[in-house]
Amino acid sequence: MSPKQLMSEDEIRRALTRVAHEIVERNDGAGKVSLVGIHRRGVPLAQRLATIIGESENVTVPVGELDIGLYRDDLHSRGPAPLLGRTLLPAIDGRIVVLVDDVFYTGRTIRAALNELSDWGRPIAIQLAVLVDRGHRELPIRADFVGKNIPTALSERVNVVLNEVDQADDGVWIVQGA
């Protein structure tokens, strides 16, 4: 079966604009907000959200990036260890940290990110923003801000294409065969 497009470039842009405004609204402005993107595609998403918030609120929102590779719970069953991305965080003590990822699925990535963040400091609060929530949670974790809810079957795969990472037009696709 050929891939089916679930979000176009414009839909991604509008969803991010809405999520950016929800983040500001929830936190009474963006003064205390820091955005942390989870490698790889969470990183450009966090940067885009920071740009949108910065323009509408006239503030500079600190952006960080987080690689959860060293905090995985499945390292020993995955075969050769995956390559690691950079972890570079702004100060998070006393901040509201919004974690940003592209696809929200089992919740295990977020669990690892929460553990990693707590080794870096003590934020006032941690919130979660995702572009796509595809369901099938395996842990009691939910997202605070969702670009689009997309019901999926376990046999399907959700592919997010972002210009910054993939050098192709933005889009969200669903593909058969996990």
């Binding site: 060293l70 390292l75 690691l84 950079r86 972890t87 553990n115 080794d119």
Partner: peptide, 23 residues
């Protein structure tokens, strides 16, 4: 090259506030 890249990330870990990861 792969192990050099991983080494760079490991060197960063040693500069973190908590110099330990649960890997």
């Amino acid at each position: 090259r792969t192990v050099l890249t991983i080494g760079t990330q490991m060197k960063d870990v040693l500069a973190r506030p908590v110099k330990q990861v649960p890997t």
